[in-house]
Nucleic acid binder design. Structure first.
Ligand code: FES
Ligand code: FES
Lengths: 173, 173
DNA sequence: CTTATTGCGGATAAATAATATCCATGATAT
DNA sequence: ATATCATGGATATTATTTATCCGCAATAAG
């Protein structure tokens, strides 16, 4: 059982965007460079996040990405589900219905107890992620990370952020 | 994020073995047939489980598998870890140390806050699995599954279980 | 002792998913 | 008009999962 490595990148990117001044955006190329990642691949995840309405994107020159809402209203679960997909990790293939002794499908209306137990565990996982907000991550970063790293990060963002100006498109017609 | 499909098979097999009479074993071929699975592949998982001391195996004719301890003392977490491996699902590649602005390694002794949050969620998942015992799964199965399925299962096991006889090897010399 | 059965472990193949790159397109600030 | 930048699809590359096979060791039964 593994989460794709894109999750780590996505959350780190979100944390960077959360520190942006109001109304500004950061191009994908800057996010990729800051984390030493391939721009082409990071784009995939950024697109997934903007498709999930967690990031907003602005095309054209001075374009880039920014958060679609306040960091207090973005949970780690939002990000993980956007990048990783919403299907549960435990996939029940209904093996109880296979092999000899299989009954007609109507005999299996009650879900398998094993499936129920596995999904209950997964629900606990999601609950913890849902109550961890991006704002807490950012606060923790500023409090605990090496001050030099924070300063560099801040300067890098300041250097690459787009000038305040255009408003983001609200509803595509 | 996905669990391998072998987890479902492993737990179902464990539930079957839990219903075996004391001291008896069931050959892998019977477990595979009962669930309509490929014997060759199921073996892989059975071996992982016996390597993890959750199942015991007895070679030779009249050999087979049985539980290594009482179902009350086997949790779903034990089974999942044996099949899936013990590494956490969230793999931190320390991307904070990459890109420009990377500092010397000693600046990163404190774990990344994102990693901490993700592992905390995973701990919650494991906690629920750890407190769900195989005995509960078996009890739930007998109470909720279609009586015909339970009866068939029971008869199938009775037909294939090995005669009581040999004791399992305790300590390989 | 011989034989048939069964688990063990390694090697390997096939299928699937994750990772990474590229390019044509459309939007838009200058 | 031009340059910048996100979008979306197509595609290559690699890793992981799934599945199969075969020789080996153990052992019960004849
Ligand atoms: S049939 Fe899928 S978990 Fe039991
Ligand atoms: S560096 Fe791995 S989660 Fe932050």
């Amino acid at each position: 059982m593994k989460l794709s490595e894109g999750v780590e990148a996505a959350i780190h990117c979100a944390a960077v965007l959360a520190r942006l001044e109001d109304g500004r955006a950061l191009p994908a190329s800057a996010l990729a460079e800051l984390h030493g990642l391939s721009p082409s691949y990071l784009l995939k995840h950024l697109q997934a996040l903007s498709g999930a309405k967690i990031f907003e994107s602005l095309p054209g020159p001075n374009g880039g990405y920014r958060l679609a809402r306040a960091p207090e209203r973005i949970s780690l679960l939002d990000i993980v589900l956007a990048v990783e997909g919403a299907e549960p990790a435990f996939r029940c293939a209904e093996i109880r219905q296979r092999g000899p002794g299989a009954l007609e499908p109507t005999a299996y209306v009650k879900p398998c107890g094993i499936k129920v137990a596995m999904l209950r565990a997964e629900k606990a996982w999601r609950a913890v992620l849902a109550e961890t907000k991006l704002s807490e991550i950012v606060a923790g970063y500023q409090a605990e990370a090496d001050p030099r790293a924070v300063a560099f990060n801040c300067a890098f963002v300041g250097r690459h952020q787009r000038p305040q100006g255009r408003s983001f498109p609200k509803a595509p017609k």
